[in-house]
Structures are given as C-alpha cells and as structure tokens.
Design a binder for these strands. Sequence first.
DNA 1: ATTTTTTCCGTTACCGTGCACGGAATTCAA
DNA 2: TTGAATTCCGTGCACGGTAACGGAAAAAAT
Lengths: 357, 357
Amino acid sequence: MLKFASIMIQSEKPTIMDIARLSGLSKGTVDRVLHNRGEVSRKSYDKVMSVIKELGYEPNVIASALARGVSRRIALLIPEQTPGSFWELAGGGIAKASESVAPLGVSTVVFNYDQRDAESFRDACSRLLDAAPSGVVVAPIFGADTQMFTAELREHSIPYAFFDTKQDDEGYLAYFGLPEYKSGYLCADQLTLDRSASEVLLVRIKRDPLRQSDPTVIRRAGFMDYMSEHCPDCIVRTLFIDPGDPERTDQELDAFFAAFPGTTHVAMFNSRIHLIVPWLERHPAQTRRVVGFDNLKANMEALARGTVSVLIAQHPEEQVAMAIQALTDMIVMGRQPARRDNYMHMDILTRYNVEFY
Amino acid sequence: MLKFASIMIQSEKPTIMDIARLSGLSKGTVDRVLHNRGEVSRKSYDKVMSVIKELGYEPNVIASALARGVSRRIALLIPEQTPGSFWELAGGGIAKASESVAPLGVSTVVFNYDQRDAESFRDACSRLLDAAPSGVVVAPIFGADTQMFTAELREHSIPYAFFDTKQDDEGYLAYFGLPEYKSGYLCADQLTLDRSASEVLLVRIKRDPLRQSDPTVIRRAGFMDYMSEHCPDCIVRTLFIDPGDPERTDQELDAFFAAFPGTTHVAMFNSRIHLIVPWLERHPAQTRRVVGFDNLKANMEALARGTVSVLIAQHPEEQVAMAIQALTDMIVMGRQPARRDNYMHMDILTRYNVEFY
DNA sequence: ATTTTTTCCGTTACCGTGCACGGAATTCAA
DNA sequence: TTGAATTCCGTGCACGGTAACGGAAAAAAT
C-alpha cells in the first residue's frame, strides 16, 4: 500500500484511460470529448469534463503526435530568400523551428513571392490555400492583398500569425516583430552616443510604390523624435538611392558629401546599409558614426571592419521561429499564446560583440 | 497509381520495420543493433547496418520517447536561486527548457548549493549521484571539488555540460558561456563611448577566498587591455565592497569619491551593479557613464531610470537552456553537439531597448 | 407495435519503438 | 550421438492517443 502511495507521488500523469475508467465510459468517448467532435451526450460530456478537471488531465502530446502521424502542416508566406537578404535570415529560423516542431508531428512548407510584384503574392496565396495547411505565418508586404488573404484564412478557420510587419486585422493569432517606433529612437541614441553629431544623413531606398506596408516609416518617426528631443540643433538630411544600381549610388553619395561635407553621422532604417559600405570604405575619414539595421552577413562584416559602428538586429530568425512555435502550440495543444502582440528585443551589435552572433 | 506516387513523394520516412524487412530479420534484431546491446551475430549486424545506411534511417524520437516512458532525468547543479540573483535567472531558463524537452521523455531536477560553502557543494554532488541522472549540467564554482565530481560522472559514463564557468577538464560534453575576455573588452568600449573618460572606477566584491573559479578575472583582463589600447591616459582605480553590508558600501563610496572627485565612469564585472545604484542615485551628477553586467531585475530597473548606462547581458537562461538541449540531444538521439565550447552572444542593454527583454 | 432513423458509445486496429520472454539454431561437452 | 549450454533471433505486449467502424439504445416515423 505504501509502495503504491510512493509511486503515486512520482507524479503519474493521468492518461486517457484513467479518465475513461473514472467516468465510466470508454476512451473513444473521452477522445471525442477532448476534440469535441460531437456524438457525445450532454450527460457524458459533462461527466468527462469534470473528471478531466478533477485529475488535471493534460494530453500527452507525443503520443498524440505519434498516433496522428506527421501530418499537420504550417505554411509560411514570405518574400524570396535571396542570398544575403533579410529574408534569407528568416529562412534560417524556419529551418531551426521546423526541426524543433517536427517531433510534435508538424511540418513546414514555404511559399515565396516577389516583394516587388503583388501578382506573385496573390499567386503564392492561392497555391498556399491549395495546400490546405493547418496554420499560416505571413510577412505581409502588400496590405490590401493580405487583407483578402487573411479573410479567406478566417473563413477556413485556419489560424495565422504575422511577423516583421503587422496588419490591421482582427483575426490574427499572434504577431512577432520589432517595436518600430522604439527602434528608431534607439537608432538615434546609438548614432549620437559620441555627442559630436551636428549634421546627419539618412539614406533611404527608392521604394516601389506598390509596396504598401513598410515598417521603416514608423521607425523614422521614432528617430526624428529622439533627434528633436536630444539634438535639436542637428541638421538631418535625406538621400534616396536605388538598390539596383551601385554605381549610381556611389555618384549620389559623392554629390551629397560634396554638397554637405560636414556630415559625419549616417543612418539607414532598413537592412541595406551594406549598399553604402563600399563608398564609406573609400572615404574612411568622412564619417564618425554609422548605424544600420539587421544582422545580414554583409552588414556584420562591415561592422567587424569598423565601417559600421552599430547594427540594430531584430533577428528575424527568432521572430519567425516564435511565430511557428505559437502556431504549433495552437494547432497541437489548442493553447492560445500568452500575448498577441509580441514586441521582440532589439540587439545592439558592435564590432566587439558581433562575432558571437 | 499516380495518387500513390504523389503520396510517396511525401517523404515516407523508413521505419524500423522497413529495415527489418529489407535485411530479412525482425525488428527485435534491428532494435538490438540500433542500441548495440549485443546478442546479434556479426553477419546480421553488418547487414542491418548497411540497410540503415542505405535507407538513411533515423529513429523516430517521439515513438522512442513514448515507448521508453518519461524516464530520462537531467540533473542541474547550481548555486541557490536567491530572488533577484543571477542564478534565479538561470532558473527561468531551466523551467523553459524543461518544458521543451518534456515531450521527448526527459525531465529535469535541480540540486542547489550554497556558493559560499564548499561543503554544501559536495553534499549536493552526492545527492545528485544518488538520483542516478542520465545527464548533468554544472555551474562550477569550486574548482577542485568539481574535478572530483566530474571524475565520478565519467566513471559512471554520465555525460555532463558546463555553463557560465568552464573547468579545465577533458571529459565535458559541452560548455555554454560568455567569451570572458571579450566581454571585458566590450565593457570598456561601452564605458568609454562618450570619449570623455579620464578617471575610471572599478567596483569589485570582496570574495570569499574559498571561491576558486571566478569568471570576472579574465573579464577584467580584457577590460584593462582595451583601456591601455584605447585610453592610455585614463586612470583606473579599484574599490572593494562587501555585498552583505549596504551601509558600509555607501560609506566606502563616499570616501572614494571624496578622495577622487574627478571619477566620472564606473564599471562592475559581476551582476551586482545594483548594489551601488542607491548611492549613484543620491549623487546623480557624479557619474557620466556606468556599465554593469547581467539582466537582473534590479539592474534593468536602474537602467530604465538612467542610473546605469549599459548592461552587458549574457542571458544565463539561454545558456542553461542550451546546455539542457545539448544533453538531451546526446541522451535521446546520441547526437554529439556541433561545438564543444559555445561562446554565446553578449547583449548590450540600454534604457531604450531594455523594456523588451 | 414494428420499422426506420438518429444519437451515442464501445471496440479495435493502428502509429513507431522498447524490451522481456521464450524458443530455435548452433556449439560444446559427454 | 545425445544432452546441455550458448548464441541468436522472432514474437508480442506496452506506451498514450486517434479515428474508423459498427452496433446498441433511444427517438421518430409508419
């Protein structure tokens, strides 16, 4: 008797059979209750539920996954993972997360689209829907199209999560991304840390007007607010460059610094700081501090060489991994995420800590 | 036919039954080969191995965990998790990691010891060995005693991993911790970012001489090297305080700053920067930059208030989680970690990004 | 009261491994 | 050549759930 008692203390988790026995029903019925797929009388339902609650039963996810077979699919909808791009980083996170949810019987499948082509986005959407996934992770670039897409997901009651950019949308399960405003604020603080800034250059990308949602807009607002609060006498100028034309970029930088040679501090709000690195390295004396975003390989190398002073990293690989995790929790255990909007940490990378990322 | 073909594409993983069939043996024999527990003829062994290799078979961890039952235990050996301490942070990581490895049939159990009392360490060691864990994670404070302990683990062929501090030891599976030297270097860089440092104070803790391994020693070396390379004219002074006596600490700080009123930059190499925060906040004009380590709650609050300029966070919760993960990979799938020594990222926390940690 | 339909529930065959048990095949001793 | 001791291997149940199937009981229709 005592032996049994001590065994009980070893936290023998109640199984589906235990609650079947205690409620005087079979495990088939209990299973129907657990997944509430009907064919259960009100009375039995209540009985089972009360026993479940009493014993604090929670299903064994691994047995569940085994029985179900590797079947649940999470589909990802993100821009093409061009080598060296922001989205390639996200790809790494997808791979890692896939591994960790695989034992739970969840697989992932990626649908890419061209971020300059709304048509390709719509195409990817429809291919994704054909695959009938159990959950979806979206990095939404095209606002209106995304709205239509998520509406369809809601209709099929497929849960979905956003990362990187959020949509005004009532149905999403979770969002993982940077606190955009604060990231601009932080950027300005890091840029002006040496207290010697008087003329600042913001380099921006000529955007395709089709692109409807752009996280850098709010980022810029945070930046400007910091500047007017902490460096009211600073002059902030903007230069637009074309990401597809390196030579033109160089010329434009030449022209800019010829016109404003007092500019010593440079910032960019997207992941493309590496585009201006060649110019900066040909004019090492021109700038005192350079701040950019995101831990792309090219960016980190420039950081290690000292060309870039600081990178603010949002680690899209973590964001997408957490989105996948949240969807898995939902799909496998029906567990709602703790928070819906998850503003993730911003890491400050300098040449002295970059090698460990 | 075509339908089946498309299903086959869905990467039907080979099972133990497949390789049994193809090698003309039974799954029992295959199982014995997989866990090489003998009772298999040389011929059968080779045959099974070749089929395994050919099919690229890898065992289904979740089925394996289910069949085995929740049994494998990983024991943690760390100092007491006093509220507000560095080790409490680690506790959070343990809880999170426990959850994620639980589905794989691995549980965790923590053994605490008093970091000022070697006897309690030895006691915890023997209690841990009695529990006969399948793997061990150690934060080694007492060098010699740890050596004896790990020797015993090796004798029982129990794999073990270090975190926070490493031991000179040939048998450990993996180590997770900060790059100590670089962290000191980074600390100096962050402290002197405003280019106005001329007199610097290092606050240190009066250590119990029993404590034999202290990660802050190397950290200090990195700090001093940076200073002599980048701020050769800076004067660096040291003050020792007693962690148990706040009033005395205040008095000593009073005395120090009375003697050296030109001191504007302060750093500490351990997680106890919060000990001097009260004094700093009573003398807000005294210091220009203050740098400390570790994301303790009290430290982060001081950071948010602006008393502390920068915290370098090593996130022990991640370190211990990765150590648990590495051991789980070893125990469950026999997979060796990719790297033995894992120097983890150092995060720079400022008042503008701290709220998202 | 009998048939038909619905509602509800138990049974059963898996999912992929681990492992104990027992028996066949082989080797050794007599 | 026969019996005993070893090797070696196959069988079958267990792990905790899932879900299809079929049948009993209850409700509805005739």
